[in-house]
Design a binder for these strands. Structure first.
Lengths: 238, 238
DNA sequence: GCTAATACCTGATTTGAATCACAGCTTTCT
DNA sequence: AGAAAGCTGTGATTCAAATCAGGTATTAGC
């Protein structure tokens, strides 16, 4: 049972095993769906989706990181989401023929799993509990977006930078003595664009935070959170 | 058939007839659900929901306007949504026991229709097409939130104010000779808070827009859009 | 109808982020 | 390995929005 076929099969399973969406399905149903799933790979910098393109599938990130973004009228890149292993997207287009409203670009080599609209549609009609799970996941996405929206509305830039660092620590941080280490998925410019501030302002804030002992710059792509509580205070968490 | 009972019955129907969510249901099913619906009224200024409270029902606005908001750590009120007739909310809590993440306050006398979680749950399990409709509505909400998020990320304040005016014209505007008339649902302070800018800055922007002939202040609560295209240019629509 | 309280506008000043400019440092590509 | 292109950090300057302050309209309550 260690034949290559079987291994490939295991590999396919990984995608849907990782997505809470399908957690309610029996192993049998899971295998059925696993067979329908397509796989694709992308190099760093490649576009998975471009704004205005059609969306035919639900996309699950199997490996790597991607950013979803649009361009503002000023030509700046506005990042909307960072997705990594286990995240999925494309749900909002499942029951509409709307065009993609953002670009999605690989930040590293990426492997994705695809489930076409019509296939998922069938699953939802025959498994109402999956539909309910999806509704609940969408609710989470909305709540997350509401938080992001609110933190954008905060005028105080220190608070926004602190919020971003804490979010990153949560999503990309690994525990280490001295505090969680964040492997930054995007450049300073990317972070600044996400926050809607200038690149230089972000640099200065990070320097200041480091002077104040809140964070420690390990190397350009790695930041260590030294004082989570103070960051939390700045971010304005109650 | 003009008995009071029947009229009350019609009145109840209105709620769910107005929500696209139930559009796929047969008249028979619709009547069934209509019977389950509860009604409540609120005076201007009353809270429908407070942050941290439990959410037991889907809420449909039958009449009036409400604002959903949180308080920032600086004590400022951050408005997340304005809902009016036909809008519904509370979906994100349907399948979780999470507490409400925002307050909802009546901006005018308000009538709402309530459908409890468990009732809606039953509907979703027996009517997969309603579930699909709900997923699609949630997708729309997400898309709307993404737009709001992006416009918050725009540094240019003129663009943000212009975007708000166009959104309001769309949602609250009535056509009139000379341009759509907007009945403002919230005060200047509310608008400023929604945009994350100072009240004074908003006043100045509105004055400037009026000087430039883009809008016309009819009275304090009414603004007429005179030059939609120029507003669109400012907002950065392509 | 009058008073009080609230919302609104506008000017003067301050403040903090954007912009400009440039040098040091990385990564990439050949 | 070496050159070129792309990132990043920091100072100097500019500029736009926040804040402070005062006066005027509008609404709410008696």
């Amino acid at each position: 049972m260690d034949s290559p076929q079987n291994c490939r099969h295991c590999d396919r399973n990984l995608c849907i095993h990782r997505v809470p969406l399908f957690s309610s399905l029996s192993e049998e149903n899971l295998l059925q769906i696993a067979g329908l799933i397509q796989h694709k790979s992308f190099e760093k910098g490649e576009l998975l989706i471009s704004e205005g393109g059609s969306m035919e599938s639900l996309i699950i990130i199997h490996q790597g990181r991607v950013k979803a973004f649009r361009y503002t009228s000023a030509g700046r890149e506005q990042i909307l989401y960072l997705f990594s292993e286990g995240d999925f997207f494309g749900e909002q287009y499942l029951f509409s023929n709307l065009r993609a409203t953002y670009n999605v670009e690989a930040l590293s080599p990426v492997k994705i799993c695809l489930l076409t609209k019509s296939q998922l549609h069938k699953v939802l009609l025959t498994h109402p509990d999956v539909a309910i799970k999806l509704i609940s996941e969408l609710g989470k996405r909305i709540a997350q977006m509401e938080n992001a929206f609110q933190s954008m509305g905060i005028r105080d830039v220190d608070a926004r930078v602190a919020t971003l660092l804490l979010d990153f620590a949560e999503k990309f941080g690994v525990d280490a003595p001295g505090g969680p280490l964040i492997t930054l998925p995007i450049s300073r410019e990317g972070m600044a664009n996400y926050l809607g501030i200038a690149r230089e302002t972000l640099s200065r804030k990070l320097s200041k935070f480091e002077d104040d002992g809140l964070i420690q710059s390990v190397d350009l792509k790695t930041i260590q959170v030294r004082d989570r509580d103070s960051l939390g205070d700045l971010a304005g968490l109650e």
